[in-house]
Structure formats: structure tokens, C-alpha cells
Design a protein around this nucleic acid. Structure first.
Length: 588
DNA sequence: TTGACCACGTA
DNA sequence: CGTACGTGGTCAAC
């Protein structure tokens, strides 16, 4: 028995499919999509534009996805978020915002900025929505106001500000504008120095945007009772009133303050107060950071009490009951906004504490009944990535070992810890510490890899933009005016370290994301879902009976992603994979 | 109310 | 004088 609405939407879907086929839209081909819930959707491709009025645009998308599996061209993953809310998930896309970030660097990638960038127009010249623009709707510039693009190449601000969804016709025009933008991005990528890699990165980064929308919707499984107990153990039970919360705070503070006489007026939350408190205890430090206080734990009991207080205070303020109430749903899922790429080297970011959950809280990350986590992290990812992107054959040979620092240490004639510190120092631009001698050894043993880092360092110093291996633009910033020589050198040094680090960290992010989206695609059929991405670590929520298969798929996916990312097989990538019921059981 | 700084969690 | 991120605290300038 089917209700009438289902029949009509099926019929509509079939009609749209027929139109798409008549227009020559091929399976897997690019197809621009805009939609507004309850109103309809717009579709566009080369020489094709259609506006479809329907209260249920997602079901049309579902039909087209099943039959054609297009590469959906969208302005951003807002479209995917809307589809997910209506129960529709698509396999692939071309995310215009993600590709813009790849091509132009930075984070902001709204349609106006994207179109301006492709036309070589300064973002400062983007027209703002104002009185004049309201008049523009009437087309006072003599052009067709139903065209989202102005004669000067900018998008019309009233379209950008929401006018694109004003009616169904406009959804079609907006889809056409998206398709034209896609074509320009595609052409620009094809003209880049590393066209094949950049195009692959664009596809991977686009899929990451779909993954982000799904991560945001699905959330990370949390055992709320365990989380409550963890918080209680640190800061005591939930307070029921403002006054009892204040009393609990005062009690925690007193445990520190009682170590010093007459210190009632000291505010532990004020670093300046803490500094004078420590001074009175005979501890003289330039700042009060934990790592700086650590050596003084034995010097005075107040130091130990303060460090313990800080840890509890962190839980109370950032990861306490309010965090639990605000970000963990009644269904036991921790949800936060995800971004596929930060504004710098291109790593993923997440809000709501998903990326900086204290280790103590990981006991509360528990798989649902009948499920497990398949957890995997990439081993020594950054030096392995450096070997790949620099084409250093000697360094690549070291990656054949499970522990690549061992052969490096042997070659340098130093202990493993020294070799490790030297490699990290080279990649991160560290100048202090005991890495000096070993660094010179690295230069001699791996001149190609070290030269790659030096080039990035010099570009940064000079203020020249860089590109990662996968083609992401890393933008440098100018040296401010009116700095003395020393300050100018400090800025240049900072850019050098940044460039040196960004080419490695950014390339590692590209490989990781390629892995993550491959896992996303390959594990769906096993009923598994990626629930956390943490720079080099993946957490996949999988049915218990599929755990072994999913674990094997994760390893296969790494090889597939590595091959797709860097077809040179001389660099070996390794993952440490485990099957656990709670996240805290995974780390050795 | 906003932005700077500190501090600290993660990789 | 390793980089990157998000969060919450205080303080000073609005």
C-alpha cells in the first residue's frame, strides 16, 4: 500500500530522470544541485537547466542518485546537510567551497568570494547588500536581474543573501551559476603545474565535505552515565543552584589557598594573581603554565595543589556538566560542527571538544550495544609523507621498516630518540634543544628531503606562497611596516617555520583525508560509519559481527588512498588498527 | 559587547 | 626561537 504522495514523488523522480537522460547527462557525471526544503530544487549541467517544484526535493535527489550516481556540484555542504536531514546521503560531489580553499588558500569560501577569485576580482570589491542593491532587483544597471551574475563578473548581492532561494526558477539559475563555477574551477585545476594530483585532491576534499556533514549529523557515541561519573570524580556532583555551585568552587579553591596564609584575596583564575601567589611561595616563573610549574612540584606544596586544581577546573569549565548538557544529545551522541579544512595547511577541525577531548574522558566514548569501534591511526605519518613528497629515495627506503626511526638512527650513528628528535626538529623548524648535531647528520644522509624542507623554509621567509603536494595554496603574510631589524627577522623566521611545517602537515592531511573518504565509501556496505577523524586517527562505529572485515578494509583503504595520493610505491604507510568497545581501550 | 591575552586540551 | 586547532577564563577598551 503506497500513499499518494509517494506515488507522485516517484513519478516526478522518473520524469526528472528521463529529462536528464534526454539531456545526455551520463552516470557519474557532474550535475549541479541547489535545493530549498518545501519549495523545490534546481539542476544544471552543460547546456541544461531545470527548476523543479516539489515539497520533497530530497526524494528527487534520492531517485537520481540511485539511477545516475552523479558527481553533485554544490556551492557548499549546506546542501548535503539539508539532504541528510531528509534522510538522503549521496556518494560523491564537487564541493565548490572546498575546491576554492584548495585553489586560493584561506578558509572563507562563500559564493561571492569564490566567483570573485575565479574572475581575478579583489574580494574587497565584492558588492555588499544595501539600499542600492535592493534597487538592483529591478535591474537598474540595465542588465537582467534574473541573472545571478552581474556584468562586472560579481554575483548579485541580493542573490547571495538568500534571493537564490526566493522561488523555484531562481533555484535553477543558481544551479547554472554553480555549474559554470565548477567548470571554471576544473579548468583552473587542469592548468595547474600538478594538474592530475590537484584534480584528485579536489575530488577527495569534496568527499570530505560530505563526510563532515555526516559526522555532524551522526555524532560520536558517548555513554552518558560514564561521562557523568568521570566528571563527578573530578569536580563533585552536579550542583542544583547558583549558590551551591559557588560553594563548590570556593571549596576547590580552598584546597589550594590553605597552603598559604592570608591568601583569601587571591583569584586562582587570574594568572597575575597566581604568579604573585607563587612568588610568595618562593617560586619565581615568567608565566604560570603547567609545564613550567612541573619542576617546582616538590618545591612547595601549593604548586602541586595548584596543578591538581587546574586539571579539575578544566573539567569543571570546559568538559563538565554544561558541556555534556549542551553537546551530548539524549541519544548519547556528542555532536559538533566539522570543517573539512582549516585556514592554514588544510587539516580537519571540529567543535564541541571533539578534537581536544581530554584523555580521561575517552572512557566515556563507548560503542552502542551490538557495535564496536574499529580504531586505526597512521604510524609516523609526517616523516613518511616527507619521504613521498620530496622523492628522497634514501628516506623512502627507511619507510619500509615499521619503525622508520630505527634505520635513520643506524645511518646517522645515533640513538633512536636522538634520530627522532632530529627528524621532528627538521620538519617543525625547532632550533632550540639538543638536535643540532643530529640535524647536520640528517642533512648529509637525506639531502633531498632536507632540501625540500629548506626550500619551504626559504619561501616562507621571503613571503612567497607555497603549495602542498596535493595542490593546496599556503598563503604567506606580509611583514608589517615599522618593525626594527630584530622584529623583521622574527616575522621571517616565523614564516619559515610555518612554511616548513605546512608542506608536511598539509600533505599528511591530504593523505589522511583521502584515507578517511575511502573508508567512508568502502565500509557503508558493512553497516559501519566513520564517527571521528583526528588528524591521523580514525574511529569507525561498526556492527560487532563485521568488526574483523571492517578492520581489514581500513588497511586496504590506506593502501588504496596512498596509491591514489602518491602513485610512487617506494614509500610505505602503516596503520595500527584495533577493535575496541571503548576508545580508551585502544591507546597502548 | 568585543578583542587581547593566558592557559590547556588534542594531533 | 615547533605548528595547528577550539574552548573558557580575566581584563581592558569600547
Amino acid at each position: 500500500m503506497r500513499n499518494l504522495e509517494e506515488v507522485t514523488s516517484d513519478h516526478l523522480g522518473a520524469q526528472v530522470l528521463a529529462d536528464l537522460r534526454a539531456a545526455g547527462i551520463e552516470r557519474g557525471g557532474p550535475l549541479a544541485l541547489t535545493l530549498r526544503a518545501g519549495i523545490g530544487l534546481g539542476l544544471a549541467a552543460a547546456g541544461f537547466e531545470q527548476a523543479i517544484a516539489t515539497v520533497d526535493p530530497a526524494s528527487v535527489v534520492r531517485t537520481v542518485e540511485a539511477a545516475l550516481r552523479p558527481r553533485w556540484v554544490t556551492w557548499s555542504n549546506d546542501t548535503a546537510k539539508a539532504l541528510i536531514a531528509d534522510g538522503v546521503r549521496v556518494a560523491t560531489c564537487w564541493d565548490i567551497a572546498a575546491v576554492h580553499r584548495l585553489l586560493f588558500g584561506g578558509w572563507r569560501a562563500d559564493p561571492a568570494r569564490v566567483v570573485a577569485g575565479l574572475h581575478g576580482l579583489a574580494s574587497s570589491s565584492i558588492p555588499a547588500m544595501g539600499q542600492m542593491n535592493l534597487l538592483d532587483i529591478a535591474g537598474d544597471d540595465g542588465a537582467d536581474a534574473d541573472d545571478p551574475v552581474r556584468p562586472d563578473g560579481h554575483l548579485r548581492p541580493e542573490w547571495v543573501a538568500g534571493g537564490w532561494a526566493a522561488d523555484v526558477t531562481r533555484l535553477g539559475r543558481w544551479a547554472s551559476a554553480a555549474f559554470a563555477t565548477f567548470e571554471q574551477q576544473r579548468d583552473r585545476l587542469a592548468r595547474s603545474d600538478t594538474a592530475a594530483r590537484a584534480a584528485a585532491t579536489a575530488r577527495s576534499e569534496s568527499a570530505v565535505e560530505l563526510l563532515c556533514a555526516e559526522l555532524e549529523a551522526d555524532g560520536l557515541p558517548i555513554d552518558i552515565a560514564v561521562a557523568e561519573a568521570t566528571i563527578t570524580a573530578s569536580v563533585g556532583p552536579r550542583t542544583t543552584s547558583e549558590s551551591s555551585a559557588e560553594a563548590a568552587r570556593a571549596e576547590r579553591d580552598a584546597a589550594v589557598l590553605r597552603h598559604l596564609p592570608a591568601s583569601n584575596d587571591i583569584d586562582l583564575r587570574n594568572p597575575a594573581h597566581v604568579k604573585s601567589l607563587l612568588n610568595r611561595a618562593g617560586v619565581d616563573v615568567p608565566d604560570t603554565r603547567a609545564w613550567r610549574l612541573e619542576p617546582f612540584r616538590a618545591a612547595h606544596p601549593v604548586v602541586d595543589a595548584l596543578l591538581t586544581w587546574r586539571k579539575a577546573e578544566r573539567i569543571a569549565t570546559t568538559y563538565g556538566y554544561s558541556w555534556l548538557d549542551e553537546h551530548v544529545g539524549r541519544d548519547g551522541r556528542l555532536r559538533g560542527a566539522w570543517s573539512g579544512s582549516d585556514g592554514a595547511a588544510g587539516r580537519m577541525t571540529a567543535q564541541a571538544g571533539l578534537h581536544n577531548l581530554p584523555a580521561d574522558m575517552r572512557v566515556a566514548v563507548v560503542a552502542e550495544p551490538g557495535y564496536v569501534f574499529v580504531r586505526a591511526d597512521l604510524g609516523q605519518i609526517e616523516p613518511r609523507v616527507l619521504a613521498a613528497i620530496s622523492y628522497d629515495r634514501q628516506f623512502a627506503a627507511a619507510t619500509q621498516e615499521d619503525d622508520m626511526y630505527a634505520p635513520v638512527a643506524a645511518r646517522l650513528g645515533v640513538d633512536r630518540p636522538v634520530a627522532k628528535i632530529a627528524v621532528l626538529a627538521a620538519m617543525y623548524g625547532q632550533t632550540s634543544g639538543a638536535a643540532g648535531q643530529a640535524l647536520r647528520g640528517l642533512e648529509a644522509a637525506y639531502p633531498v628531503a632536507m632540501g625540500y624542507l629548506r626550500d619551504a623554509d626559504e619561501s616562507g621567509r621571503a613571503g612567497r606562497d607555497l603549495r602542498t603536494y596535493g595542490g593546496r595554496l599556503i598563503r604567506m603574510w606580509p611583514t608589517p611596516d615599522h618593525l626594527d631589524d630584530r622584529e623583521q627577522r622574527a616575522v621571517a623566521n616565523g614564516r619559515g617555520r610555518y612554511g616548513r611545517n605546512a608542506v608536511v602537515q598539509g600533505a599528511a592531511a591530504e593523505l589522511f583525508k583521502s584515507w578517511a573518504v575511502t573508508v567512508r565509501a568502502r565500509t557503508i556496505e558493512h553497516g559501519a560509519r566513520v564517527v571521528l577523524c583526528l588528524h591521523d586517527e580514525l574511529l569507525v562505529h561498526a556492527p560487532a559481527e563485521s568488526a574483523a572485515v571492517v578492520a581489514a578494509v581500513l588497511d586496504d583503504c590506506l593502501q588504496e588512498a596512498a596509491w591514489r595520493w602518491a602513485p610512487d610505491r617506494s614509500v610505505r604507510f602503516v596503520a595500527d588498527t584495533s577493535i575496541v568497545e571503548r576508545w580508551s581501550d585502544a591507546k597502548a
